[in-house]
Design a protein around this nucleic acid. Structure first.
Lengths: 153, 153
DNA sequence: CTAATTTATGGGTAATAGTGGGTAATTATC
DNA sequence: GATAATTACCCACTATTACCCATAAATTAG
């Protein structure tokens, strides 16, 4: 049955109507219960992140556990929800990403879509290159720490 | 019966449709649960590495333990999944390796496939020769250090 | 040594993916 | 409420990929 996870990297362009293609591979990896929709929101980097609708529902459940009294909890909940937009892809597999999201990722025309197993990242190619040259750099210490992290638990 | 590990070296060429043969011996070494698919990605050297789908699923499980908040964790996960591509071989035992992966290994036409027990390396013949003459050289100290490494644990 | 089987390679064809655009339906604007 | 703008839905074309069949070389079996 192949994999139900998102992997690999794909490049597309936004057409004149503001539509971007979603890799067929990713569309197929969506469970039926996600009803052909991804939830796209701001990423923590200068990018966008998309989840399957299912995964987003899980996230909502987690957010509901937060306190409505504590200001930090409210802020976190607000931040996570505020920009989240469910997008159903059309019969050709494309979605129209709202302009205010594109702006956050500095996307104008070209787009790089990266599979991250349980989520999807959407980048402007130039921004991605900039991050590769700086933020992404991991030294031996980082890698060892991460290695320990995955092995424990 | 044979072994379920990958050993030996094989040479093939990429055909006009971009397909490369996978040694029959390696195909047979794949467990049924891997569904005739390897996951190919960038190697740490100027080469490509392929795992059985099973082995890749294990890697995914580890990567899913990482924090989605910590930038180093995200970077590590991104780096690991970005170029990972599951390839199912056709009824003749061939796979079509995506161009951006071939480029990383500087592969144009000829290919050397090397069994590495639990993984497979894919090289351009000329690049491999270059590495043999430089990077691969091990002196007595290196070998002793490795011997100690394998004996401990 | 010869026949049978498997492996490697080539290529045809149908199906799918990606891209562009038309038009009706919906929503927003005045 | 009429008009404009946006969105949703549909159809069409091209390139790529997946799937199938065929053959030659190599390997194995008898």
């Amino acid at each position: 049955m192949g994999t139900k996870t998102f992997t690999g990297e794909f490049r597309y362009t936004i057409d004149s109507k503001g539509r971007v293609n979603i890799p067929a591979k990713f569309r197929k990896a969506l469970p039926d219960t996600s009803e052909d929709t991804f939830v796209i929101t701001r990423g923590l980097d200068e990018n966008l992140v998309a989840y399957s609708l299912d995964k987003w529902r899980q996230k909502e459940d987690e957010l509901l556990k937060l306190s409505s009294i504590k200001p930090e909890h409210r802020a976190f909940k607000r931040q996570a929800t505020r920009f989240a937009t469910p997008l159903k892809f059309d019969s050709q597999g494309r979605v129209a990403i709202p302009p205010y999201l594109l702006k956050h990722a500095d996307i104008e025309k070209d787009v790089v879509i990266i599979g991250m197993i349980d989520e999807i990242e959407i980048w402007d190619p130039a921004v991605l290159v900039r991050y590769e040259e700086t933020e992404f750099r991991l030294d031996a210490e980082d890698i060892e720490a991460i290695d320990n992290y995955t092995r424990s638990s």
